[in-house]
Simulated assay, not measured.
Amino acid sequence: MYIFVINSGSSSIKYQLFRWPVEQPVCSGLLERIGLADATITHKVFTAEQEQVSQRSLPIPDHAAGLREVVRLLTDPEQGVLRDPQEVHVVGHRVVHGGEAFAATTLITPAVKAEIKRLFSLAPLHNPANYLGIEVAESLFPQARQVAVFDTAFHQTLPPKAFRYALPTSLYSEFGIRAYGFHGTSHQYVAAQAATYLGNPTAKIITIHLGNGCSMAAVLGGKSVDTSMGFGPLSGLVMGTRSGDLDPSVIFHLIQERGYEPVQVQTLLNKNSGMLGLTGFSDMRDITKALLAGDPAAELAYDLYAYRIQKYIGAYAAVLNGLDAVVFTAGVGENDARIRALVCRNLEFLGLHLGETRNEECTKELREINQAEARVKILVVPTNEELAIARQCAELLTA
């Protein structure tokens, strides 16, 4: 069966098409800058282990127009991989926030859509785009079963001592204010890959997802027991544009003493802070260039970024009562050897001994970067959220 996976962001759509049970996608793509006249779509078709890439710039006013363009590419007479959109059996959607209602992959029904919509206030930057992706896909693939895979679902195994805040109980019972965690699909995928590699299904693993958004998870026996993101995706690590952990007093000070409006503070912490606030750049590749040019702001940003990760490694090693592996994943985690070296520095007491030569190697496969004799494995595991979503869709519908 064909499974079409959609990862719909506020101004982008990532997608992959699988001819299940083959886990190598038939095609994949990325549509960026939706809503602008110079939107771009990069479409890749995989045949006989070869990759055919096409890229276009065109006006894409909204997600509906974007997905229509994707369908056109899927069925293109020359480069297409489908004769008709009706061949798609399942559409899998990444949905960021499932609250406490969804602890597993779920077939989308009107009631499920209503709950996703109800959760808009908990993920205002993500759930509306995810919901829109569902509505558009329902119109373009009316015969297909629509399935939701929730970023928060993997973290529903957190114990109350990890997910509750020390606030009045009514705020939790009436309004659902608690830590939910995010990037769950990625953490679950790479933790499972690592456990299989270790040959230990009960392994104690710390997963470190470092992209533009960043988070960590403590995983015990394949289950999340703690994670760095909380009520929303703002807390925890320093990120591309998000502040990460912050004393709430700063927010009160900005509003009461500096005249900020709440929406200004929200924009400041979500879009103008993190590495962007520290250096003027949100992309680590630009920050690396600045660092190599001797920019002290870039040096501080790198140190601060790595230091925050180290603190969570220490905390999660305590939570897990030991450690079998640390896993780096996502764009920065997989590709930035400097960050990995800074993170692992001075953690020998935990059993982390980085292999410098191994760390500098750059491949697209799961690999060890620890010294050969090290007790704790340091792994780089490429994440693949789209494949993880496809797997979960197939498991749900063939159970």
Rank of each mutant, 00 (worst) to 15 (best):
L246S: 06
T207C: 00
F231L: 14
D247A: 05
S224T: 04
Y197N: 13
G240C: 06
V219S: 01
H253M: 11
A218K: 09
E257W: 02
S235V: 03
L246N: 06
P262G: 13
N212C: 02
I251H: 10
H209A: 04
L220M: 10
Q256L: 14
P262C: 11
I206P: 00
S215C: 05
L220Q: 11
Q264R: 15
D245M: 04
T202E: 15
N212W: 02
L198K: 12
G230P: 09
R258A: 10
V250T: 12
G221Q: 10
L198T: 08
V238P: 04
A203H: 11
V263E: 15
H253V: 03
R242P: 05
L234P: 01
V219N: 02
A218H: 06
G244V: 02
S215Y: 01
P233G: 15
H209L: 03
N212P: 02
V238D: 07
I251G: 10
G232W: 09
V250D: 12
D226E: 13
G213P: 01
V250L: 14
G199E: 12
F252N: 14
G211T: 05
I206N: 00
D247M: 06
V219A: 01
I208F: 00
G236R: 09
H253T: 10
K204L: 11
F231I: 03
G222W: 05
S215G: 11
I208H: 00
G222E: 07
R258W: 05
S224R: 06
S235F: 02
L220D: 10
R258Q: 14
S243E: 05
G244S: 08
S249P: 04
T207E: 00
I206M: 00
